[in-house]
Amino acid sequence: MRFHEDVFVAGVGTYRPDVVSTAFAVGASWYDPADREASGMESVMVARDLPGPDMAVRAAEVAVRRSGHDRDDFGALLHTATHHQGPDGWSAPHYVLRNTLDRPITAVQVGPGCLGSLAALESAAYRLLGNPEHDAVLLTCGDNFGTPLVDRWRASKLFLLADGGAAAVVSRRAGFARVLAFGAVSNPSMEELHRGGEKRFPPGITIGRSLNFEERSAYWREQWAQGVAPPMGHFGDVVAETVEHTLGEAGLALDKVARICHSGYTRGALESIYLDPLGIDDTRGTWELTRTLGHAGAADPFIGLEHVWTRGEVVPGDHVLLLCAGPGMETDCVVLEIVAPYEPAKEG
């Protein structure tokens, strides 16, 4: 969908904890040396015992300050989480709200998984266009994967799970990036790939089953060997269709896009799912950043956007794609036009 009325990203902020090098992980026998070599990954963000919602709060403080908005301008907070946030039955979005805007407004959690931040951006834009009562919506996300039931180094060969937080302010008034279009394409026939034969009830986490995508991939390899075809489709085709559709809505060609802020995948997955289907090389994306950080769930596109904007790698007139692939299987894409440069003098 193309947005014919003005909607902006007014502020973006991140919380990036210290990194652990993949060389150290190999030395500690956490990470297989061959997997490290194939991945191209240099390091991964690890937050130790800092909860995901607290990383979201720290990122939000930066995004709100940069936005120029007062707390009373906000009509909603949309929070995204890829991993468990705290006590079962507790509301992480309202914890983030209490420790940021502290206003009596709605706070909800958006998913699924890594797509949540862009789905939240779309929802925020619709809210602002449909309800003129408030001028801004705060988007937050934060995850800590350092829990007993997750092995960040071995859960998937497609990515290394990273801790971190990110936030953005969506505004109807002004901002540094204008939102031109949003698009999403899914192939629900492939949803089974992320189930891998697991029972839907009771949920695995409630009986101590770990998050392990490699086990689910092994299940489908076994099924294939027994003559049972797995769900067919190539995720890269979904990515290419999403980008083509969204750029068409924005009236742009891919060669007019300065940078693509994508998920923090390993080298092979990045090429297979993003780069090759789009016919681009890694310099158009954020590989040199993501290979040092890992895959921080829904925070990835905002981490990339902050990086290229604050470093002056995109300037007014440039176009940026925010691009996420997630479970479902679905890809979401946002087209932005940079309309204001980063001004570090205003950071104080």
Rank of each mutant, 00 (worst) to 15 (best):
R152N: 11
S189R: 15
F201G: 03
P188H: 09
P148H: 07
Q109Y: 00
K199F: 09
N212H: 10
A125D: 11
F201K: 11
A184R: 14
E122N: 15
V150L: 15
W153T: 01
F145H: 15
P132E: 04
G197P: 12
R98E: 13
R103V: 13
E191Q: 13
R178I: 02
A167Y: 12
F182S: 14
S117I: 02
P188N: 09
I207Y: 01
L118K: 04
A167W: 06
P202L: 09
P148A: 06
F159K: 08
L115F: 00
N131W: 07
C141M: 06
V169P: 13
L128R: 11
T206Q: 04
A120M: 12
S189C: 09
L180G: 03
R154Y: 07
R172T: 07
A166G: 09
A166R: 03
P104N: 05
S123K: 15
T206C: 02
L101S: 11
G197E: 03
G111Y: 02
V137E: 02
A174R: 07
V108Q: 14
G142N: 08
P104R: 01
L161F: 11
R154W: 05
S186W: 00
D151I: 08
A184E: 14
Q109L: 10
A125L: 10
F182M: 11
L101E: 11
L121K: 01
G142P: 10
L138P: 10
F182V: 15
H194S: 00
G175P: 13
E191D: 12
A136R: 00
R195G: 00
T106C: 08
G208R: 10
E192R: 05
P112T: 00
G197L: 07
A136C: 02
D151S: 15
A125G: 08
C141G: 05
R98F: 08
G130I: 07
A168L: 06
L211I: 02
I105A: 10
D102Q: 12
V169T: 12
S156C: 04
K157T: 13
S171E: 10
S123F: 14
A168T: 02
S171T: 08
V170Y: 07
V170W: 05
A184P: 01
H134P: 03
A184W: 04
T206W: 04
L139F: 06
R173Q: 04
Q109H: 06
D163F: 00
V185G: 00
A107R: 05
T147A: 07
N99I: 02
F182Y: 15
K199E: 15
E198A: 13
A155D: 07
F159Y: 14
G130H: 14
T147I: 12
S210H: 10
R209E: 15
I205D: 12
